[in-house]
Nucleic acid binder design. Structure first.
Lengths: 221, 221
DNA sequence: TATCCTAATAATGTATACGAAAAATACAAA
DNA sequence: TTTGTATTTTTCGTATACATTATTAGGATA
């Protein structure tokens, strides 16, 4: 829940939750793969209680799914689910941008610009790029300061990141991503809510097209 | 997770979750009130494990909040939180209406119209009215068929329902609520996505004004 | 009476124990 | 080989035990 807390002094269930989500994001857990409590216990050396709680939360947030008879698997992201993610993401990112444009303080703008500068300097590798990208979006969420939005946006950001097939063709993404982020930033700085919303919408839609086409080439193989 | 399931064959944690949420909605648990595991165990005659899981989910969804040193209370809904709820709700309800207008089948329309007819016939009392109201919205969510939207919208619907101070002045709400629902329905039937979005937006904003002013009169007392 | 120290109490995080239900496996018979 | 059945194993839901930490209460002293 608290974001700035050291991971080690959080309850084990939260640590496990965070670590599993990381594994999901990094593709160590793949679509459709079965997840059992015992496996989580083994892997993270915790007892069933925190493992259970982490799994239940991941289920609730849509990262995992229950199949017939209670078995749990990593939620497969097919085109249908990807469209659900992006439909929702568009609504949520637009709101985030709009609220940020309304509420951003000077300090907020400095922080956001800092992340943008980092992105401009260029990422060392793909993971780094994705990190910076996520930080930008999370910063916007923070500025929007809406707890319900935050919860949703966070989940959707990670879920969208899980849509991938091949890693290739993802890095040049940086070119338009940077331009989009600059646009969003500018609108927020200007306090122009509709411009912010529009920029966010375009950004999400570009991401959507890219990801969906990625899925399509994959499923046709 | 599955909606049509008998409550009794769901895991205890889900049953407890549902029951606590009901108590919250009905005002049996009030803002700021402390909630302890033991209390939940006592009240529902379950052991700590399911009680814990229910509480964690309620925390995660924003119904409960952690205060200093891990104490858990019913999240107080002040004006700030109410605005967060309604800002987010506007985005989510608009999306729900839009998607429904795009996807609704004849069968969907029949079901939705059925609820509307019920509302037209009038509710017997306030609880009944709220039930019908919720059913209408849930039906729209279902038609939109987006899992991420559903989770969010459901939480926001209940959260918004928890904004209340006095019960008075809530019942005449029915007059404009019905009109709004009819508008939303019509747009969905027409497959007019922008009209659906607009109708939903107006509806949410009306609810927002009403609830916020309710809170304001309360806090000024 | 106010304050501080200590003991008791309660609450939460974590681990483990138990039971039921489902799945997998092994083995026998057709 | 296939099928059917019995047995073993896994997995999960639930309960409870243990440990640690925070909170409260009581009593002694200034």
């Amino acid at each position: 829940m608290q974001s700035e807390q050291e991971l080690t002094d959080l309850p084990l269930s939260d640590q496990v939750y965070a670590k599993v989500r990381e594994l999901l994001r990094d593709g160590a857990f793949v679509s459709g793969q079965r997840i059992s409590e015992a496996e989580i216990c083994d892997r993270f050396q915790v007892s069933r209680t925190p493992a259970r709680e982490a799994i239940r939360r991941l289920l609730n947030e849509g990262f995992l799914t229950t199949v017939e008879s209670g078995r749990i698997i990593v939620a497969p992201i097919d085109i249908e689910r990807a469209e659900e993610i992006y439909d929702m993401r568009e609504a949520v990112e637009c709101l985030a941008a709009k609220l940020s444009a309304k509420k951003a303080t000077t300090k907020d703008l400095i922080e956001l610009r800092g992340i943008l500068d980092e992105q401009r300097r260029g990422a060392t590798d793909e993971t780094d790029f994705l990190d910076i990208n996520d930080r930008f979006h999370r910063c916007v969420y923070k500025i929007a300061s809406n707890r319900y939005l935050l919860r949703s946006a966070e989940i959707l950001l990670v879920s969208a990141g899980m849509i991938r097939g091949t890693t290739q063709g993802r890095y040049d993404y940086n070119t338009w991503s940077l331009k989009d982020h600059e646009e969003i930033y500018q609108a927020i700085e200007d306090g122009n809510t509709t411009a912010a919303e529009d920029a966010a919408r375009r950004h999400v839609r570009r991401g959507r097209m890219q990801r969906i086409s990625l899925l399509k080439t994959l499923s046709s193989v």
